[in-house]
Design a protein around this nucleic acid. Sequence first.
DNA 1: GCGCTAATTATACCT
DNA 2: ACAGGTATAATTAGCGCG
Length: 792
Amino acid sequence: MELTFWLLDPSYTVVEGVPEVRLWGITDDGRRVLVKDRGFRPYFYVLPKREADLSKLKENILALSLPDHPILSVEEVEKKYLGKPVKVLKVTCQQPPSIPTYREKVKRLSSVEEVLEADIRFYIRYMIDNQVEPCGWHQVKVREVPPSEAKGFKVDAVYEALEPPKPLPPAPPPKLKVLAFDIECYSETGTPKPHKDPVIIISVVTNSGDKRHFLADGKDDRKVLEGFVSFVKEFDPDVIVGYNSNFFDWPYLVDRAKKVGIKLDVSREGTEPQPSVYGHYSIVGRGAVDLYNYAEGLTEVKVKTLENVADYLKVMSKDRRTMIEYTELYRYWDDPSKRDLLLKYAMEDAESTFGIAEKTLPFLIQLSNLTGLPLDQVVAASVGFRVEFHLLRHAYLEGELAPNRVERPYSPYRGAIVLKPRPGIHENIAVIDFSSMYPHLMIKYNIGFDSYLPPGEPPPDEGFYEAPEVKHRFKKTPPSLYRRMLEKLLEARAKIREQMKGLDPHSPEYTILDNRQQAVKVLANASYGYLGWVGARFYMKPCAEATAAYGRQTIMKANQLAKEYGLDVIYSDTDSLFVKYEEGKVEEFINRVEKEVEIELKVDKIYSVLFFTEAAKKYAGLLSDGTIDVVGFEAVRGDWCSLAQEVQTRVLELVLKEKSVQAAVRYVQDVVTKLRKGEVPLKELVIWKTLTKSFEEYEVEAAHVTAAKKLLEAGYGLEVGDKVGYVIVKGPSDKLADKAMPYIMVKPEDVDYEYYATRQVVPSALRVLRYFNVKEDELLAGRKQTSLFDFT
DNA sequence: GCGCTAATTATACCT
DNA sequence: ACAGGTATAATTAGCGCG
């Protein structure tokens, strides 16, 4: 029979010595199913040395075969390696776990140059080779496995694939069952530890409208764990989402369940959550998604707490949230009069998580489908790996072998051009930029690891492109794999955007397409950086270096033409030009540049008023709708206290919009006065900085590090990558590092308000106001003198 | 040892 | 673990100095 299903989660196992790929999915009629395929075998490639005798090598490899998990075959196949045709041996084995062993043995054979693609996970290999796509629809010929033989699989039906599934054209995903959860633990001393601290609450929200708590019995958490497990089994979610669940909830639940003797068998094959690739927890048959991974990509949110992210995504407003300090949680559990509040708080966490999932899953589903990484993995994988898996799919289709991942020393190269801005206020400025400059340059000059012509190699008849300055050469034909891949991505995006035009922006069709085009954009934009990443399989520095060099040439050309057209360039960074907007001239200029460099150029924004300091990468501009863009300034940097950010934002508003330096000065003076009187909430004085390495690795004493040490002493778990919130207090010495206190330990009377006045508020205001002759003294003096002139 | 500047370290931003 | 370019603050090293 034929079955149509949408692939949610791939896994595999070895049954009776045979590898079995397991495709967990949802059918077009809404049944949860498992499709098993025992027809696929793991393999790797052997690149022989040039002088090697292939038939001899074949024999030598086969001689390594062990009876328990044999080598099934060694065939000679034609492939390409970095664009060059090669004869390689494909070594097919019986069992995936034997691959690493055979790889090591084969590698040591004298006539072997390299072993390739031995480290690609079995079910990923299966999907690549059969063009099976995660989060995509497929059709497959199957035989149903009788229910009596399918016990232990928590699905509506189990099938055996008679041949590999075939992908179907893109269509909307099925209705997925989504469950969001969050746990609270009981700890009187800092971060809870699973060996001693129980789970007291698990709150759950589902998209069937269910919201409920599971509670511990006092400090006995057996009931809460059991309740949760049986609820998961009963609701049977396709996707389970948490927030920081990879680092907290799942490992904690697993440890706790073990400790109290409860089986956390929440997967669709009755197994526990397992730690897996990219630091994520996998639950077989479901998509376990940690939305913190998604939040890591939101650069606009500086401190990525659940509350902040939910607020930013308009899922749950921050000022309407029930907040309880982590240190206080246990008191709320112990005190019957406060417990309801704790339950409310816990539920709001689950609701926020659920809300974020609703908004982000459609995009993540598209990203999974496009890259070929399973949903749970694609969320956890970094940008580099997303690009890489997408690339692996292309490489396979074109017969290109994937190089091995090797450790390389960091090796930087020259990048883009940034011009110094013209400081001060400007009016009517257009920001013109090249669309997707790097991808288009790579296409135009056929850049790629397979088209690269190393020094000394004779050029082909068809000719080559030679990059400026760096002189790297690339064959003009055939089109590089990178070029074809990027063309596909850019075409796909253009097509999607065309389709979107006819649709209502609020319709589900529109949303799906929008998510798809965003996913495509992510990949296209990261493709240039990937080639210069020393961790990349397809690392090829000359490609990245040449692309950057062409980029410099292109923007320089545009700058030169702007001058010829009488356009005043005020600033330029990488692929953008800020020019005085003169309508006719700008259009003519754009046409000319497009003709010369063959890359689309467009007016991105027009600022009615724009402000620059002497510094590059910082500006603030007023748009016609009255909004102000702030770029690069302290106001958008997460390592300044929010009071200083607020002050700078307001100052920019007063200067750009109200055009009143005087009002800005008065405003700052008022804030300074208030600050000195202690009338500013402590919260606004917290400075957040990331702990980027372990304590021992720091070479100097930094404020956030000393604050972090104090947190650690008090029992709080802190890890590399965490943000430390501290406040500067009147300290034992003048050294700032000695005066930094974790904000949760600070009393308002301890605060060093002079620090905030002289090192936070006034500097951030002065960054702008000093261009209008405002002096530090004036701002610090409080409101006395009336000031100065306006620039208008 | 003191007071200064220059160099180094550390972070977060922009395209 | 996508890239390089840039700004900025704070700490530390280095230097002159009876």
